[in-house]
Nucleic acid binder design. Sequence first.
DNA 1: CGCATTGACATACGCCGCGTATGTGCCAGC
DNA 2: GCTGGCACATACGCGGCGTATGTCAATGCG
Lengths: 197, 197
Amino acid sequence: MATKRAQMMEETRAKLIRAAREAFATKGYAAASMDDITADAGLTRGALYHNFGGKQGLLQAVVDQIDAEMVERLIAAQERAPSPWEGLLAEGVTYIEMSLEPEVQRIMLLDGPAVLGDPSQWPNQNACLLRTAQTIQVLIDEGTVKPVDAEAAARLINGAALNAALWIAATDEPRAVLPKAVEAFRQLAAGLLQTER
Amino acid sequence: MATKRAQMMEETRAKLIRAAREAFATKGYAAASMDDITADAGLTRGALYHNFGGKQGLLQAVVDQIDAEMVERLIAAQERAPSPWEGLLAEGVTYIEMSLEPEVQRIMLLDGPAVLGDPSQWPNQNACLLRTAQTIQVLIDEGTVKPVDAEAAARLINGAALNAALWIAATDEPRAVLPKAVEAFRQLAAGLLQTER
DNA sequence: CGCATTGACATACGCCGCGTATGTGCCAGC
DNA sequence: GCTGGCACATACGCGGCGTATGTCAATGCG
């Protein structure tokens, strides 16, 4: 077994991450105090510094966790689709929908990049992005989409979806503009398709 | 003439905004202290609070100023293009290029949204976005692009350009990936075109 | 099985930065 | 020229972060 101390430590980390997710999502990174977070977790700032090195480290851990969950949902969405191309669209739509969740939006799309820098520089290398790039590469190889740079296309696709989500979330009637955004997204994405269809 | 006091006040605001632009761009919003900013401007925090109400107000003023400059450059780029469609592409490319500037990136793309919330909610209503939406609407009216929602398309286009820029800026050789990004952007944007071309 | 060591976490302290309340000098109007 | 008000400076308190130090328990070794 993984020596008692190690599993206690994992438990501690998990409690801190859980409390931090809650606080960062509701109050934002800057407004969330480490004292509050650690108190919620039934600990003190000492544990936080010991496990994560500081506030940024904690945010990084939270980001990594959410990123992992997101990529799992992306994969699920893509696998449910009837074709690889529909899979890419499904990923995009799923990304938009996930970005509507306050937690994702606040932590992954706003505070994350602002505090930790560009997502492509994150230690985890932003699994969501990698996933999309892989999917596009498959489509290029099978001749469905034009031979563009896969990473570039993934970036733009994700960026488009991201901003669509931010826009939707900021409007008064999110459910009214969502279909408009999805439609525009599909049109844009179609630009990647081979012309001789 | 605009009564001496009023123009002194404008001068004060200008000096503060100038110093804040510098500080926010280089150190980031959170790390930039109001004491440093006001000292650079040859003033104190009293002036800052009087004129802008606080740190956020100052950031808002900086954002508004940069946004105005950006939209001016976008218009110039669009007017230089041979056709409205090329104008839209030129706007996108210009947007990408502007987003490569550290000042724009840090203030407009990272800290701005994180601190002030989504750009579409800003008092100025983000002139860049409005501009793109107008351009797209013209293209829809003249039948060049499909009848999608102009605002939605503008959001996605800008979002794609934005993420392309963040990506480029984060890489080691920005000048190498820029053309790849631009190419992918043009392909994506082509998805908006009427199919019967 | 007892002791030393190390590691996980708590406690304590100082500094910095923001916001506000209060003070001061200087321009406008009568 | 005197007064009121405004633009800005000064002074103060509070909260939050980071670090240095302390404490207790678990591990490893004889």
